[in-house]
Design a protein around this nucleic acid. Structure first.
Lengths: 222, 222
DNA sequence: GTCTATATACAGATAGAC
DNA sequence: GTCTATCTGTATATAGAC
């Protein structure tokens, strides 16, 4: 803010700023997921990032601002995952890709999913504006696409909205409820093969009711 | 504990104890759901129950003990909801009833569902024993039933485990993500008619892939 | 049984040394 | 930019008056 000094070293400092910022964001995503917003103390986030807690405050000013950054990231990632849902694409293939991508994210970014779940469970006290400004219109657009597929006779006349909710619920379940799933898997995390089985099973269960009778390609997909 | 005194009034006191205990449990379920374990202070629970906070401590001793009671209740209710999953019952009818009951509970006991979700998201720091002692064997029993249905040729050869997870995920989504669903419903809670539509849509989506080709009765059910 | 007062710990955020 | 010291508030739990 009061810059001027150290102008010559700004390049190095900027890179350092970015590195530290990223470290904090990664740590924060995990700690917010595992302890909830209230239970995630700045000192715990700092300890997880390996820096003093006042450093966290210095880079993000407040706990809430840091939290919003974390939530915003997973929100953006999920939106990009739905790119395949477009009128020009084949419905079963597009929905299958969406499920695959969401399940890959459930495995690779489980903490982000958990933070989002926590926030919604608690009635979005901090990111309600995201829901109203962005999620709402985004969702309506996807529903319009799915309804167009129904109109065109490309899929069975299912409820587009509830199909979307079912895909969200099921794919995110494998992230949010990882601990329960692991416990029911004799305490060991799902293997690569089990994750592949999961993808196949989820697509089979959710898309068999969507595909037209006799249509194939639900399970057998790259 | 050091009883003896006031023996004649014990009947009245016991009834009062039960009343107050219930008030606290109802308040606690809501507050734990809306603020998470760490964010749910005893004073907030007490305020919600309309009593002084030391009273809450008197009846439940610790915040953790109170929390365990709350989690245990929803766990028991959900187990009872799966009574219909029994080899002697018709699969599609039984699974449809299970989905209906879970969705009814999503509407009537959303806070319990949220508390459970929160606890699992945070890796069951307090009720891990429930998962290992009770949930595990209970789940395996249900999977055995569904696999028997497959063996008997009563349903398609789906993955029993992932079907169960999909039912849990989808039905609980309507409780845990109520706020998101409400926001996407223009800010108003689902109406009676919309809840009926939800039941129909969820059963249609999840059970179309389970029923044998040409089998009906998935959607058309009392 | 009920409630006030309090002990002890830790939270978020800030001031200011370096 | 980084970190120590500290201010202020609130948490759980307990002691003990009534």
């Amino acid at each position: 803010m009061k810059s001027d000094v150290n102008k010559t070293t700004r390049g190095i400092q900027s890179r350092n700023r970015e590195e530290v910022t990223t470290r904090i964001l990664v740590a924060a995503e995990k700690v917010f997921a595992e302890f909830g917003y209230a239970g995630a103390s700045i000192s715990r986030i700092a300890a997880s990032a390996g820096i003093p807690k006042s450093n966290v405050v210095y880079y993000f000013e407040t706990k809430e601002a840091l939290y919003r950054r974390v939530v915003g990231e997973i929100f953006d990632i999920w939106r990009a995952a739905a790119d395949s849902i477009s009128v020009d694409n084949d419905p079963i293939r597009a929905l299958g890709e969406y499920i695959d991508t969401k399940l890959d994210l459930a495995r690779t970014r489980p903490y982000g999913s958990k933070v989002w779940a926590n926030e919604i469970i608690q009635r979005a006290p901090i990111v309600q504006d995201y829901l109203e400004d962005e999620l709402r219109s985004w969702t309506e657009n996807r529903i319009t696409v799915i309804e167009a597929w129904v109109q065109n006779g490309q899929i069975r006349p299912i409820s587009a909205r509830h199909l979307l909710y079912a895909i969200w619920a099921t794919t995110q379940h494998y992230a949010d409820f990882t601990h329960q799933i692991t416990t029911l898997n004799d305490g060991v995390e799902l293997s690569d093969a089990q994750w592949e089985d999961t993808k196949t099973a989820v697509k089979d269960l959710l898309l068999s009711g969507v595909a037209l009778p006799g249509q194939d390609g639900v399970v057998t997909d790259g």
